[in-house]
Amino acid sequence: MAKGQVAADRMTVGSALGALDEMESDLRHLIGLIAAFRILGEADDSIEPVAVSSLARCAHETLEELERNWRTAIGALRER
């Protein structure tokens, strides 16, 4: 394998790893949101729809960011 190809492979793998590393904080955020939904669901109190909507919007944004990073990682690895 030529030196240029080795360098390109390292850069590609580095890009994929960077995108995967960025996913960690989003995954933790999503885990927290799911825990909040579970707690709210198990509570006997009435929950305002606007509160549930706010949490759902936050979860949606987090999932979009996870999807972007996932696609970046997969795209970088497919270029190899």
Rank of each mutant, 00 (worst) to 15 (best):
A51P: 00
L40S: 00
L20F: 10
V50P: 03
R38Q: 12
E42V: 05
G18C: 00
A56N: 14
A2P: 15
A19T: 08
R78V: 09
E79I: 05
L77D: 10
A16K: 10
M11F: 06
V50A: 13
S54A: 15
V13S: 05
R38Y: 00
G41M: 06
L20H: 05
L66E: 01
D26M: 04
W70F: 13
I34Q: 12
A73L: 04
D45K: 14
D26W: 07
F37S: 07
I34A: 14
A19E: 01
I31H: 13
A56E: 13
N69Y: 00
L27M: 14
R57F: 01
M11S: 12
M11C: 02
H29L: 14
T72W: 01
E42Y: 03
L40T: 04
A7M: 07
K3I: 07
L20V: 13
M1L: 07
A8I: 06
I34L: 14
R10W: 03
L66F: 08
G4T: 11
G41P: 05
K3L: 13
E22H: 11
L40E: 11
A51M: 11
P49V: 07
L27D: 10
E48P: 04
E48W: 04
L66R: 01
H60F: 09
L20Y: 02
A43N: 08
E48Y: 04
A8L: 09
G41E: 08
L27N: 01
E67G: 00
R28W: 02
G18L: 05
R78H: 15
A59Q: 06
R71W: 11
P49R: 11
R71I: 03
D26T: 06
A56F: 11
C58Q: 14
C58T: 15
D44I: 02
A43T: 13
R71D: 13
R28V: 05
A76N: 06
R10D: 09
G75R: 07
A16G: 03
M23K: 02
D9S: 12
R57I: 04
E67V: 02
W70V: 01
P49N: 11
A35T: 12
A43I: 03
R57P: 03
L17Y: 02
C58D: 14
V6C: 06
R28F: 04
W70G: 05
R68K: 15
E61I: 10
E42R: 05
D21T: 10
A2F: 11
I34H: 08
T62K: 03
R38G: 04
G4A: 13
S53C: 03
I47T: 15
R71T: 07
R57H: 02
R10Q: 06
E61Y: 08
A35Y: 10
A8G: 05
V6A: 15
L77G: 05
L17F: 00
